[in-house]
Amino acid sequence: MRTVWLTAAFFLVILAGSIIMFAYTNALYHQLQESLQRIHRAVEEDDWDAASRESEELQKIWARTDASWTPIMDHRHVDQLDESLTRVVQLIKLRRKADLLVEVAVAKRLAKRIKDTEVPSIRNVF
């Protein structure tokens, strides 16, 4: 009987942990998307100083996101997003508008892909 209670407790811990992790993953994803959106807007308006300031904010958000996503997400997907964000930061420094807008779009798509794999949907189940 003790084992049954213990395993039931395990189950509840995993369930609660999954819900909390999902909520946290979602929150980080939105922060990342908003930061990328701000960079996109600043670059479109040729406001490179604002883009540069936002890139520093983006790196801080990414450091938090990477630390929490890497232990639970497919490392290949996280690495792809990491490479894309590195390119975004470098392209802001180089002020290459066209390439930067493409890379921001790629980074947004990669982040969405990672977030979507965690959504408890029929598509993901199968």
């Binding site: 084992t3 049954v4 395993t7 039931a8 395990f10 189950f11 995993i14 999954s18 890497t70 232990p71 639970i72 997400m73 497919d74 490392h75």
Partner: peptide, 18 residues
């Protein structure tokens, strides 16, 4: 990620015991 294995193993154990 190791969690991708740890959690299903624990869940299988839970389902087996229950």
């Amino acid at each position: 990620p190791l969690f991708n294995s740890i959690i299903p193993i624990i869940l299988l154990m839970v389902f087996q015991v229950l």
